[in-house]
Every structure is written in C-alpha cells, then in structure tokens.
C-alpha cells in the first residue's frame, strides 16, 4: 500500500489538499469569530510559500528522475517505470502548484469576510 511509487504520486496533491483545508479552516474561523482579517492574509501567504516550496521540491526531484535514462515510459523494466512515475509526479506537482496559486489568489482579490 505505502510503496514509494504510489505515495510519491499522491504527495504533491496532498500538499494542495493541506493548503486548501488550512485556508478554508482559517478563513472560516476568522470570519465566524470576527477576528481581524489582517492576520489571515499573513497566515495564507506563509502557508502558500511553504506549499509552493514543497511542490517545487517534489516536482524538481521527480523531474530529475524522469530525465535520467533513455528508456521510453512504457518500457517493461525498472527504468521505464521510474521514468514514467517521475514524469507523472512532476505533472501532479505542476497541477498542484497551479491549484495552490488559484486558492491563494482569492485572498488577494477578496479582502473581507462579507
């Protein structure tokens, strides 16, 4: 179940999920408890920087596995599988990065709980 192959594919998207849940929970609590919204944007900025750094690292590491070697992605051997998974993880990291930026952009545009 928790083999490196499957866990690494899920990892970048889990970072997006963590960022999303954090943003949602912080916004919900701050707005419900009438706390100052200023702190909210700081917290989101920090979480966003952290999330982007994480997916960038995952993506770069996966991409380096993908460019190593010359076997095609559908080669029936370890190298083919490793290159394919590297490629897939890099794509997932890119998608996660874009999705994190989408979430963070909301806090730039919407500045109140109204």
């Amino acid at each position: 179940m928790s083999t490196p192959g499957l866990a690494s594919i899920a990892a970048p998207l889990l970072v997006w999920a963590g960022h999303f849940v954090f943003s949602y929970a912080v916004a919900a609590v701050v707005c419900a408890k009438s706390a100052p919204v200023g702190g909210l944007r700081g917290a989101i900025a920090l979480a966003t920087a952290l999330a982007l750094a994480l997916v960038a690292r995952q993506g770069a590491s996966a991409w380096s596995k993908h460019v190593r070697g010359a076997e095609p992605h559908d080669a029936p051997n370890d190298e083919g599988r490793a290159r394919f998974v590297g490629h897939l993880v890099a794509l997932c990291a890119a998608l996660s990065g874009v999705a994190v930026v989408y979430s963070a952009a909301v806090f730039l545009v919407v500045r109140s709980c109204e």
Partner: peptide, 11 residues
C-alpha cells in the same frame, strides 16, 4: 463568507 466562496470557486 466571501473568501470561502472564492476558495471553492478557485478549486
């Protein structure tokens, strides 16, 4: 809250 709606709109 508007920020919550925005977040789900983004996703």
């Amino acid at each position: 809250p508007g920020v919550s709606l925005g977040l789900f709109s983004a996703a």
